[in-house]
């Protein structure tokens, strides 16, 4: 009986996993290998690929635009601590028996699920230097607003503000889930010791949320390297490349300028960076977490 089931399972496994394995091979494994092979060539998709060895990678390191756009991408990530801090702040406020709790949670999370393209268009209109509502509101309190998306200095911060507005609900939700995992006894014990609200936050809440901090940080960094939609809509990388993220450089190289090899090389470098960042963060979090679990 047992042997029969085992034999039968192999057949069923092929049936149930068939579509997955096929998809995995065709859209993951083969493209992954192909991507590396393409990165060793010059290929405009019109003629055959020309093997150039590591030339794309060498050129990349000498390409000032690559570094500029990588810098832009990292600059966008400066918003991460603000967004996480704001998300934690909101979660702390909401982690109480408030009547409107569901309403708040729904409201703050709403921009997270809505279509980025539509949101970006809306904010482009809000940011309009002449007719935008934002500069009008600023003028009411006597501030002459900047040109926002048209200004090389303000375009990146403008995109970041929109990004925090759109994304903060996610951080809030994850922190809220994390807060509910913290055992109440810890707070009770701290109160007996006479700890105030700030002490409790510093000594219990914040350190016990360490896994959540790390999870959010890793996800934000990974997503941060893939920023594309909002920038494409709002500025298309301008003015003068001051908002172009690295993902847009990949897109432009591949699909505008027909440089499949070069684009693949950038994609590989980027993947490597993401992989290293994840590894480092994972390593640090493991150290910190083991310290926490022994206390």
């Amino acid at each position: 009986m047992r042997i029969k089931i085992l034999k039968g399972d192999a057949g069923w496994a092929i049936f149930f996993l068939g579509p997955n394995i096929l998809g995995f091979l065709v859209f993951m494994l083969i493209p992954l290998i192909a991507s590396f092979l393409i990165s060793l060539t010059n290929w405009d998709l019109l003629g055959p690929p020309i093997f150039v060895g590591l030339k794309n990678f060498i050129n990349l390191l000498r390409d000032p635009l690559f570094w500029k756009y990588l810098g832009n991408t990292l600059f966008y990530m400066l918003a991460i601590p603000f967004q996480m801090g704001l998300g934690l702040f909101l979660a702390l406020l909401m982690n109480k028996p408030l009547k409107l709790r569901t309403f708040y949670r729904t409201t703050y999370f709403l921009p997270v699920v809505t279509t980025t393209v539509a949101i970006a268009l809306l904010w482009q209109w809000i940011y309009d230097p002449e007719f935008g509502i934002l500069n009008y509101l600023l003028s009411l309190i006597g501030i002459k607003g900047p040109a926002w998306l048209a200004s090389p200095a303000w375009a990146k911060p403008a995109i970041m503000i929109m990004g925090v507005w759109k994304g903060v609900g996610y951080d809030m939700l994850i922190y809220l889930a994390g807060l509910q995992e913290i055992p109440a006894q810890l707070y009770e014990a701290a109160e007996i010791d006479g700890a105030g609200a700030w002490r409790k936050f510093l000594n219990i809440t914040f350190p016990l949320l360490m896994p959540v901090h790390f999870f959010l940080l890793i996800m934000h960094v990974i997503w941060g390297f893939q920023i594309f939609d909002a920038v494409y809509i709002m500025t298309n990388g301008g003015p003068a490349g001051s908002t172009t993220p690295i993902m847009m450089y990949i897109y432009n190289n591949a699909f505008r300028w027909g440089k499949m090899g070069y684009a693949s090389a950038i994609a590989w470098i980027l993947t490597l960076i993401i992989f290293l960042v994840t590894l480092v963060q994972w390593w640090i979090s493991k150290k910190k977490l083991s310290y926490l679990s022994t206390t």
Binding site: N20, S35, M247, F255, M260, A267
Partner: peptide
């Protein structure tokens, strides 16, 4: 098999995007 499946979660879209496009072509 499941482990290798999990590993693919780490692969960002930008790497597979170009070859997948070539395949579609």
């Amino acid at each position: 098999l499941f482990l290798s499946y999990l590993l693919t979660l780490m692969i960002p879209f930008q790497v597979t995007m170009i070859p997948t496009f070539v395949l579609l072509k």
